[in-house]
Design a binder for these strands. Sequence first.
DNA 1: ATGCTAATGATAATATGATATCATTAGCAT
DNA 2: ATGCTAATGATATCATATTATCATTAGCAT
Lengths: 136, 136
Amino acid sequence: MKRNTRQRDAILGAISDARRPLSTQEILTEAQVVVPTLSIATVYRNLKDLTAEGWVLPVKLPGEADRYEVTKLGEHYHFKCSSCSKVFDIHETIKNKELPVPADFVVESYDLILYGRCKDCTPKSRNSGPGASKHT
Amino acid sequence: MKRNTRQRDAILGAISDARRPLSTQEILTEAQVVVPTLSIATVYRNLKDLTAEGWVLPVKLPGEADRYEVTKLGEHYHFKCSSCSKVFDIHETIKNKELPVPADFVVESYDLILYGRCKDCTPKSRNSGPGASKHT
DNA sequence: ATGCTAATGATAATATGATATCATTAGCAT
DNA sequence: ATGCTAATGATATCATATTATCATTAGCAT
């Protein structure tokens, strides 16, 4: 029979609170604030369960390990900061009609990944650039 | 001193002729048509050289190993067929102004990856679906 | 044609993310 | 409070893509 554990709560809590996709290491670190003895194996185990149960979704970026975020976010895209490496959700919308698609191809889904500088890492605000605050 | 080898020519030739990004295994298979003794190690070695010299570029898709294509293609996107798993180039253009970007973020580049059915794998043309011709 | 040595082929080794193992811990029904 | 056993923690193992090793091959300058 399925059991509720502090570990599972801490892991789901970390993902929910982050408001951006977290790597497995970030999840481990955040959840260890609540459960210091938490093991990376338990993180992976619970991520698999939580994904199968539909609570979280893997966020896949080219050339990188999966990050995870809560499911209820709806359609959105991702922005990766080239400075602090954090990934953010972009909830603005792109109209399907604007997608560049050749006639012969049937598009079932698509991923839009933006790369650049996040708010905290824009060069202009030089007192809040990378290094000004802790980054993961 | 640098030497021209049949292997290098065969590898670059395979990538040039493909007109779509090829995986390392596809490159090996295609180049072996010209140089049957070609080893996968030589493929990787030459891909590294050709990339460093600017002849080819790695194409990175989420959760997948790098594919390679020639550099001279200019700005474009990629389409992955969910049936035959081939990746195709999409040369249509998306206007930057249409990109969904929050005010605080500075976008330096972006990736658009489309998923769906390629021409050969559309259900409607049932005499040219997957299996009708050799796929990689 | 010869010699130097870069490049190759075959395969072992590595790196990394993820999974399996197993003794121990701790939910939760009783 | 007790017992059953799911879940955990620590770590070994696996899977895959890529790189290193090294004896052999083959460009190419002479």
